Simulated scan of single mutants.
Amino acid sequence: MSPLSVSKVRFFKKILLTIGLSSLLVNTGWAEETSDPWEGFNRPVFVFNSVLDHYTLKPIAEGYQWVTPTFVQHGVTNMLNNLGEAKNFGNNVLQLKFNDAGVDLARFGFNSTFGLLGFFDVGSKMGLQRSDQDFGQTLGYWGVPTGPYVVLPFLGPSTVRDATGKVPDYFMSVDNYINDDGVQYAIWGVDIVDTRVQLLPLDKMIVGDPYIFIRNAYLENREYKIKGYVEDDF
């Protein structure tokens, strides 16, 4: 499994919330017109990614969902989220959100032990809410501009800032330091399929031009995550 596939996992996790938050805005015409200077490049790449997903990832996800019991699916999702707590912790520290970083650390400790390596999300039951952080948000927190919107092959929607942030995030991911290649590849593969399964019910929410819908949804969500968190801190 290549690093490109790992980064596509991050895209799916982000777009899951994105589509839900932005569908109303798009349908009612409230979403602002977005500057997209690289659209001539982005659209062909978007089509390539869509075809690849339609003929490979989506069928695999549908098969996984059909054969895997629901409670197992939830447990797998929890375990994968638990592995992501290191990235959340690192980015919260870099954003000077030390309370949130402490919650990340506590969640990892409780879920890894009492939650059986994260299969059960006992942290949330204890009131420790999960934080979804990445280095693109960290750069935005410190005032780095987004740059143009760009669709990356295999990786999906991004901006110049978010694409740059994928590199530090890669090195902050715990699963990249597992010495057993077979286990590491298995985690990456399951992560990709698991996150695609979560998106299956949302496919039908895309209306109009899919390219424009996903672009606006992605940018709306990124703006909310960065500006919303910054405003809460002051």
Rank of each mutant, 00 (worst) to 15 (best):
E33D: 14
E220N: 15
M79Y: 03
L4M: 11
G140L: 05
N81R: 11
K227F: 08
A31Q: 08
A217N: 01
G109E: 00
W142E: 04
L21N: 13
N78E: 11
E32K: 13
F48N: 04
N99L: 10
K204C: 03
N99P: 00
N91I: 05
F110M: 10
D132K: 14
K87D: 09
G165N: 09
E223H: 12
G127F: 05
V93R: 01
V26W: 01
T56V: 15
N92V: 00
D175H: 14
T70P: 00
A61K: 01
R222N: 11
I187C: 02
I192P: 00
V122H: 05
N111Q: 03
S5D: 06
W188M: 11
N92H: 12
R215P: 02
N221M: 08
T113W: 01
W38H: 07
L105R: 02
N82P: 09
S22Y: 11
A31C: 08
N81M: 08
V144D: 01
N88Y: 06
F46Q: 06
V183W: 09
V197Q: 05
R43I: 13
R43Q: 12
D175Q: 15
G40I: 10
V207S: 15
P37R: 05
L25M: 13
A101D: 02
Y211W: 12
Q129M: 13
G127E: 06
G136V: 04
P210I: 04
L4R: 04
L52C: 05
H54I: 07
S112G: 13
I214Y: 01
D162V: 02
V160Q: 02
V144R: 01
F135G: 00
E33A: 12
R130V: 02
N92Y: 03
V51E: 06
I15K: 00
Y170I: 03
R196I: 02
S124Y: 07
L219D: 00
G123W: 02
V9L: 06
Y224S: 03
A217C: 10
W30E: 11
V122Q: 03
V103S: 01
Y55P: 02
D36W: 02
T56M: 05
K227L: 12
D134N: 15
T77F: 10
L83H: 12
W38T: 07
P59S: 11
G208V: 04
F48Q: 09
T28Q: 13
F46M: 11
G127V: 06
P69S: 08
P37W: 09
M126L: 15
I15W: 00
F110I: 15
